[in-house]
Design a protein around this nucleic acid. Structure first.
Lengths: 204, 204
DNA sequence: GTAACGCTGTGATAAAATTCACAACGGCTA
DNA sequence: TAGCCGTTGTGAATTTTATCACAGCGTTAC
């Protein structure tokens, strides 16, 4: 089993490979990849070893080979996602995300405010939250994105899980509790900014 | 020196304390705090110990005391931030962030597209990027937020650093290189979603 | 051919983060 | 008072993550 940290880096490497392929670069050394990914050569080699990739000591790693091995590991078969909470942040994600990743496609958005529903926003249809269960089942959605205010986060997660969602990305600034077997990732902009403020205060 | 991981949790605990105080809760046990923060009792106790906080074995920890100790450690004196890249994501952050944290205040936004500048968006004045240096100096901005497309991320970061910014929060899906002494935090929505997709595929 | 170079692959090591496990304590009960 | 219970505080152990350091190999230089 490959660790989450490593997987995260593999996703990054994969995107870097896409760029390199566009630029017709054939080979990379671990120190180049480290440079591009703000990592260390040893880390890169270790990651690639974990991924079962082998390079050549004179030319480095074959870019196309890397890319296809990454695709293999990262299973780029698309999964559908539903977003709940069509506020500013939700809308930004709806507009930002399409075509950014081969792994995820946002297919529906939900809100409790009826003035925001039954429309198309950035190409994505919006529904009342009451329809969550139904839409998730009908369209085989497996991922949920929470961009609600914090008070609604937990209940939203609960509904998602009841509807059969397997993983949740939570943008609300509160931790959300999920049963074992459901993947939860929290991405808290407030904490990120606070961390930024804290560590920028003095040379660290 | 307190580790970054711990600091991050302290920020979270602080927000939880704010909620508890509102609800007139006087004391918390480590297992309650663990529950609220999706952590473990041992982790909480360790963090509080690191923060130099001491509790009572019968009542737990004094909420107000915790809060004020957190404020002390996390230095809530406000720092000013500038955002570069007024796209959907940038705008969402401009609208989302105000009043979320006592630590950071976004005071200016920049873009290279003149149709987006010299206006007020969500209460924040926007400028042409050419004015970055000047505005940063005049208003004593110390933090930068990058929400540009990925090709502009590195040059934006470079300009920020020249202008004297101490820390950068990068939303562009590419790593950004900064000299030592500058704090950089990357928050990559694409990677988060991809990670979500990956780990939701099967029970893990 | 052979020496020298720079890189990979990886066991070993170190460092960081988390969890275990338990002595010590305060308060409650009787 | 004595005994029990649930919690803290923390050294020690464990687990996870990252780095070191070097043997071995393909390539080039001569």
């Amino acid at each position: 089993m490959i660790s989450a940290k490593t997987i995260e880096r593999l996703f990054l490497y994969r995107r870097l490979m896409t760029d390199l392929i566009k630029r017709d670069t054939r080979f990379v050394f671990s120190h180049e990849l480290a440079n591009m990914s703000q990592s260390s050569p040893a880390q890169v080699r270790r990651d690639l070893m974990t991924a079962g990739i082998t390079g050549s000591s004179s030319r480095g790693y074959d870019v196309v080979n890397l890319k296809s091995r990454f695709d293999e590991i990262l299973h780029s078969s698309v999964q559908k996602a539903a977003l709940v909470g069509i506020g500013n942040l939700g809308r930004a994600i709806l507009s930002y995300f399409p075509h950014r990743s081969p792994a995820v496609e946002i297919v529906a958005a939900f809100d409790s405010d009826s003035s925001k529903t039954d429309r198309i926003i950035h190409g994505i249809r919006t529904y009342a939250v009451d329809n969550l269960d139904q839409v998730v089942h009908q369209t085989d959605v497996s991922l949920g994105i929470i961009t609600t205010p914090k008070d609604a986060a937990q209940t939203t997660a609960d509904s998602m899980i009841v509807a059969g969602i397997r993983g949740i990305l939570n943008f609300a600034p509160v931790p959300v509790r999920v049963p074992a077997g459901i993947f939860i990732e929290s991405l808290d902009l407030t904490t990120s900014l606070e961390k930024l403020a804290y560590f920028s205060r003095r040379p660290h």
